[in-house]
């Protein structure tokens, strides 16, 4: 132990590599082994494109988890965004320009509502967002009258479907990958370089201490839910571009996002979380699904695997925590 810490040339101990990156690297090697075409731009760009909605969701979810909560409402928020967009655009290509801001607003609004319910009605976030999930599903169903119009204008589907061609080195870049990079960059900056991010950590770590230190706990918590809602709306806009309109487009995404964040080492019940690692978790989860596809395993196996991964990731985190003391 030194008398005074040497902070000028920050002697951090060797940065521990987050295991999610090792897992992701191993999975990618396995994919390449099974499908050498993956190293081509069509291989990895399509992979990134497919992973983009989940990665964006995970980047939002990690805010809520780090602040000490869960957001189960994002899956049905995605459905609401897709269904709502098809209703509002009503086959009018020019409507996209106002519908997208409206959808982002709905995402922020749903998040704000979640946050306010948790803060002021004192409903635990697991229950509050579960209620919101059921409610939004119903709203989406009511809005579409149960039979959504299976069409979104091309202007809307631009974000999910289009590519930029003739890019040097990688040949093409899907717009969704650009959206992914921009959103993740923004979310990572907010989480790891601003007061907001520090406070999200602090309120998840010890809300009492944070309040007594003057942190605006409710404002921070609502903001965390709003960012998760925003990520849901963006993911919905991308998914609307990928596929048609249906009332189950978002089903299951909320749990995948939580699994991804936990795989990235986010501490359940709050206090620790990393946006890049959550995105790594989302990529790893997508890579596992890709492998299962290659192996020709049916959909239910995906669910079994995802469930086991969630349990394993938390168990591993608990084990590591025990080993490092407390």
């Amino acid at each position: 132990m030194t008398d005074r810490p040497d902070t000028q040339n920050a002697k951090r101990r060797l940065p521990q590599i987050n295991p999610v990156w090792i897992l992701l690297a191993a999975l990618i090697v396995a994919i390449i082994f099974m499908n050498p075409g993956f190293v081509e731009p069509t291989g990895y760009m399509n992979f990134l494109k497919r992973a983009a909605p989940l990665a964006i969701l995970a980047a939002g979810q990690v805010y809520v988890i780090t602040s000490g909560g869960f957001d189960l409402s994002v899956g049905s928020l995605i459905t609401l965004v897709v269904v709502g967009s098809s209703m509002l655009t009503n086959n009018d290509p020019t409507a996209t320009y106002w519908v997208i801001p409206v959808m982002l607003g709905i995402g922020l609004g749903v998040g704000a509502l979640n946050g306010l319910i948790v803060c002021f009605l004192r409903v635990p976030s697991l229950i509050a967002t579960l209620g919101m999930m059921i409610t939004l599903n119903g709203v989406a169903f009511l809005w579409s009258g149960g039979a959504p119009r299976g069409y979104l204008p091309d202007t809307f589907r631009f974000f999910g479907r289009e590519l930029i061609r003739d890019v040097p080195l990688v040949r093409f870049i899907p717009i969704s990958v650009i959206v992914l990079v921009v959103v993740v960059g923004l979310f990572a900056w907010l989480m790891h370089r601003t007061n907001l991010g520090r406070h999200v950590h602090a309120i998840g770590d010890n809300p009492v201490a944070a309040r007594l230190a003057g942190v605006a706990v409710n404002r921070v918590r609502v903001t965390a839910f709003m960012l998760s809602g925003l990520s849901g709306a963006i993911a919905g806009i991308l998914l609307g571009g990928f596929a048609g309109v249906s009332t189950d487009v978002g089903t299951g995404y909320e749990l995948q996002a939580i699994t991804a964040a936990v795989l990235g080492g986010a501490q359940l019940l709050g206090g620790r979380g990393s946006v890049p690692a959550a995105v790594g978790g989302a990529l790893a989860l997508t890579a596992i699904f890709t492998l299962l596809n290659f192996l020709g395993l049916p959909q239910p196996v995906r669910q079994v695997v995802q469930g086991l991964i969630l349990i394993a990731a938390v168990a591993l985190a608990m084990h590591r925590r025990k080993q490092t003391g407390t």
Partner: peptide, 29 residues
Amino acid sequence: SEGLVLMQSVRDNGMLTSRAFAPLWASDR
């Protein structure tokens, strides 16, 4: 139970209050 955010760094604990009265979106440094 009332003073510390235990999983955060020494410096983050020291800066907790000064950051709480700065804009949310501003740099934490």
